[in-house]
């Protein structure tokens, strides 16, 4: 579906205490249909890297190509890129003043100019796919965290994206709700969606990921298959990190 290439990407933030190098010279390729998981300690730049891909953050240096189109080039239509690359956030970010159905139909109707009936039909299909057919007309606040996150995934899918970004999609959830969200994500991975995600769910990474990336201090320090990364990591910082969380 889509190929994401991150080339020598850097992102600096100017803070009151000076310049903070959130991401330093990162290189990474997610091939068409691949699932790539980024792991690493807090503050290592995982979210920043992810947010550069759909230009929620502007990269300081380097390039990001999506199917060959450079996101960082000045003339690029970033809205077009964002239509094609969905994003799911840790805190769901559903729109509280809209119903579940309206949350899903808004972007197809306003951005793709889809007519209402068609958008609602699509939304109902997606709700069925994430197992929430009966929740179409409630407001997000009436849903559990797991349900909200599944709606957020459906909302992204409604734009028929070629690739999806997930930033710690299960970190804000109670343990008993994590599985329902991971199941939806696993299905997506199986169907061949290109996925770049930050998660510390090692079970998911082992089952669905093609590649695992370890980041620390803004740098990509190690990458490899899940088996290699979880059983025989080489970089001492990776070993240290995995010892802490496993």
């Amino acid at each position: 579906m889509a190929k994401i290439e991150i080339k020598d990407l850097s992102k600096d933030y100017t803070t009151p205490n000076g310049v903070l190098h959130a991401v330093k010279h990162a290189n990474l390729t997610v091939n068409d249909g691949e699932v790539v998981v980024i792991i690493g300690p807090s503050g290592s730049g995982k979210s920043t890297l992810l947010r550069c891909v759909n230009a929620l953050e502007t990269a300081t240096a380097g390039h990001i190509l999506i199917d060959g189109i450079d996101v960082t080039a000045p003339g690029t239509d970033i809205r077009q890129i964002r239509e094609e690359v969905g994003m799911v956030f840790q805190s769901f970010n559903l729109f509280p003043h809209l119903t579940v159905l309206e949350n899903i139909t808004l972007a197809p109707m306003k951005v793709k100019k889809m007519d209402k009936a068609e958008a609602e039909e699509l939304a109902r299909q997606l709700l069925k796919r994430v197992g929430l057919s009966d929740k179409a007309d409630v407001h997000p606040t009436q849903l559990s965290g797991g349900q909200q996150q599944r709606v957020a995934i459906a909302r992204s899918l409604a734009m028929k994206p070629k690739a999806m970004l997930f930033d710690e999609p299960t970190s804000a959830l109670d343990p008993e709700m994590i599985k329902e969200v991971l199941d939806v994500m696993t299905d997506l991975a199986r169907e061949g969606m290109t996925m770049l995600l930050v998660t510390h769910e090692m079970g998911f990474a082992k089952a669905a990921a093609d590649k695992v990336i370890f980041m620390d201090n803004g740098e990509i320090l190690e990458e490899g298959t899940p088996e290699k990364m979880f059983t025989s990591p080489e970089n001492p910082r990776t070993i240290d990190f995995l010892n802490h969380i496993l």
Binding site: E83, H97, A107
Partner: peptide, 26 residues
């Protein structure tokens, strides 16, 4: 919350659409 604007923009809405449909109603 900032996430509202971000979610809207990440879906491909323009800033003014995000204001009109997401931010102002809230």
């Amino acid at each position: 919350p900032k996430g509202q604007m971000e979610a809207a923009i990440a879906l491909g809405l323009s800033r003014s659409q995000a204001f009109r449909y997401i931010i102002l109603p809230q």
